[in-house]
């Protein structure tokens, strides 16, 4: 177990700059999720942590030791790859025991460690199978077993669940979380799925185009997104964002509709802003803004409604069950303390 410190790390492939100075502090035992759209450099950063890519600039330290020049095998980390990278010609047992065998561990010790990891992951019955004889979820578990046997200071996961079907993904998500709570090993986990990030992380790092947009606890990111990118990325269904200006203590959207404004922002008359409100923070309110219903999607626990106000389309999610037709009128109003205001030019929260 160890802390991990990433200080102003840069990466270029040839002349293409991929990471533009990324800094993350990871505490001992923390579960950190790197999340961001495809191509933003998450895998690259993880592979730099593992030592599989060299570091163009900046510094990475694991447990107070700068590892920029330390080869992968001496970094005391274990990685679970997206495609699992199980050795196809070795049985589950041999796959899990491989690192111990290379280290020259005595047979009994190796046996004990593999059995222990197999017990944790429920793989005891599968030890003599080859990877091809396993289901996707079982392979996933073997890949984790291989990492556990290493008993590393840091676990690295690169989109480990993306090859699984939706149901198994939810199950493995909680298994990984449970495993982390039992072993308490510092973990860095890459995903592009914000739900995975929200449910698993102690700390989320949102990346975009090789930069960190915001880092913090999941609910902090949900409650106070630092900019439009994070606001749009975290939360499902995504936040509604209306462009417009502040006038006479309220917000006027592009279609001229008047929206209530949190009192703190009332003074900024004339400012061009973006008004953000999450679908679940719209309320049914007979005195609210009149909207036309486009689509009603009941999920059982809530009802998601696509609404139209003038030319603007937005999403609402309501606890109430709504029975209505296309074109019916629904009056809604935002939950005022939960409205987010962003500067239109910079995209930053104000």
């Amino acid at each position: 177990m160890a802390t991990v410190e990433i200080r102003d790390v840069r990466k270029a492939f040839g002349s293409t700059q991929i990471l533009h100075g990324v800094s993350v502090d990871i505490e001992d035992g923390q579960f950190v999720v790197l999340v961001g759209p495809s191509g933003c450099g998450k895998s690259t950063l993880l592979r730099m942590l593992a030592g599989l890519e060299n570091i163009t600039g900046g510094e990475i330290s694991i447990g107070d030791r700068v590892v920029n020049k330390v080869p992968p095998k001496d970094r005391d980390i274990a990685m679970v790859f997206q495609n699992y990278a199980l050795y196809p010609h070795m049985t589950v047992y041999q796959n899990m025991a491989f690192s111990r065998k290379l280290a020259g561990a005595p047979k009994e010790v190796m046996d004990q460690e593999v059995q222990k990891a197999a017990r944790i992951l429920g793989l005891e019955q599968l030890l003599h199978r080859f990877p091809r004889q396993l289901s996707g979820g079982q392979r996933q578990r073997v890949a984790m077993g291989r990492a556990i046997v290493r008993n590393p200071q840091v676990f690295l996961f690169d989109e480990p669940l993306s090859n699984l079907d939706a149901k198994l993904r939810v199950q493995m998500r909680s298994e990984i979380k449970d495993l982390h709570q039992r072993l308490k090993v510092t973990t860095v986990y890459v995903t592009h799925d914000q739900i995975e990030a929200m449910t698993m992380a102690d700390k989320i790092v949102v990346m975009n185009h090789g930069r960190i947009e915001q880092a913090g606890a999941p609910l902090d990111l949900y409650d106070r997104p630092a900019n439009l990118f994070v606001a749009g990325f975290i939360g499902s269904p995504a936040m509604n964002m209306l462009a417009g200006r502040i006038k006479d203590g309220s917000f006027i959207d592009g279609g001229g509709t008047r929206w209530p404004l949190p009192p703190a922002h009332a003074g900024r008359d004339g400012a061009e802003v973006v008004y953000g409100i999450r679908p679940e923070h719209l309320r049914l309110d007979p005195n609210g803004i009149q909207a036309r219903i486009q689509v009603v999607e009941p999920t059982g626990s809530e009802t998601q409604v696509t609404l139209r106000i003038g030319e603007i389309s937005l999403m609402g999610a309501f606890r109430e069950r709504i029975v209505a037709n296309h074109g019916d009128v629904l009056a809604v109003s935002p939950d005022l303390p939960l409205v987010h205001i962003f500067d239109k030019a910079s995209g930053q929260r104000i």
Partner: peptide, 10 residues
Amino acid sequence: SLYEAALLDG
């Protein structure tokens, strides 16, 4: 990735 895994396995 097999070589990378083996690299990490030491």
